[in-house]
Design a binder for these strands. Structure first.
Length: 287
DNA sequence: AACTCTCGCAACCGCCCCTCG
DNA sequence: TCGAGGGGCGGTTGCGAGAGT
């Protein structure tokens, strides 16, 4: 037999969340912090499964989430990261601050996949023979180069200012791009976005102070713990990296380090890591 | 105006991994 | 060492809105 359901199916409400339920959930998290989701329905009186509460929080109510309106840059980044990481949406999301894995997944399934299929169709209909292995490797190199550039752009601090983390969903002309449909919820959150204490409650919120550290930190946590669980090259040491993250200077994951490696200054190291990654890629996509 | 079709997205489901006793 | 429970993740579904006929 499989696992029992995470919650009793009896009396569990399903379907869209109401603003009232959102407020209750936000109030609870505001008071207790995210986590211990099992206890949330019982403590709040919400007739929702604990998983549903967690999903609602992480995908919708969490402060700093940006929804819809993917920029060209984000789109390109997603395409390249998907090529590198596969459908590891949480890992991909860690490279895009303020985007949730669910949002990226939806964007991929509804927009990008079609786009790429259409592009593929154009390519395949042009009577071009399938690439040989050498061609494939060259193509991979090209894509990797683009991914490198995209990641550098994403992590760049001397260019345009990083997108501000805001929870004020109700105001502004681009309010449609943000989560939270209930103004009072966003008001509640805006008063909470700068927590004085540390701990789980600060997860993803304190990051607002530094978009860069959020990008690298989140990427490290997620890429190491999720994207690369089955991939030793991509996950050099989850435990070590989490310690380092606590120490304040989050190390880059192997793939990030490699993407950011300057070939001209560290040619040997770059080649070494690159060969490892290529080897993994070739093993994953056996010809 | 009414109906059908298509699309986008929020939410659910089931599996897997990690932690803890 | 092992099993149970909690949480995370990716795949899938269902519904509402808009477009088309």
């Amino acid at each position: 037999m499989g696992r029992p359901p995470c919650c009793d199916k009896e009396g569990v409400k399903k379907g869209p969340w109401t603003p009232e339920e959102d407020i209750i959930l936000v109030s609870y998290v505001q008071e207790h912090g995210p986590g211990n989701w099992r206890a949330v329905p019982a403590r709040t009186g919400l007739l929702r499964c604990s998983k549903s509460c967690r999903l609602r929080w992480t995908n919708y109510l969490r402060p700093g989430i940006r929804r819809g309106g993917f920029s060209d840059h984000e789109e390109r980044l997603i395409v390249h990261l998907q090529a590198l990481l596969g459908n590891r949406w949480s890992a991909i999301a860690s490279y895009l601050p303020h985007r949730t894995d669910n949002d990226i997944k939806n964007f991929w399934n509804t927009h990008l996949k079609k786009k790429l299929l259409a592009a593929n169709h154009i390519v395949s209909s042009s009577s071009t023979p399938p690439p040989a292995k050498g061609d494939w490797e060259r193509k991979l190199q090209t894509d990797i180069g683009l991914a490198r550039q995209a990641l550098r752009d994403a992590l760049s601090v001397n260019g345009a200012a990083p997108p501000a983390v805001t929870v004020n969903a109700g105001g502004g002309d681009d309010s449609a791009a943000y989560a939270l449909n209930a103004r009072d919820i966003s008001m509640m959150l805006s008063g909470w976005a700068a927590p004085s204490g540390k701990g789980a409650i600060a997860d993803g919120i304190g990051a607002a102070e530094s978009a860069l550290s959020e990008v690298t930190g989140a990427a490290e946590c997620s890429a190491a713990s999720s994207a690369s669980n089955s991939n030793p090259v991509l996950a050099p040491s989850a435990s070590a990296s989490s310690k380092a993250t606590v120490a304040g200077v989050p190390p880059l994951s192997a793939i990030e380090s490699w993407l950011l490696l300057d070939d001209s200054s560290e040619p040997r190291l770059a080649l070494e890591v690159e060969e490892q990654l290529l080897d993994v890629a070739l093993r994953n996509y056996a010809f």
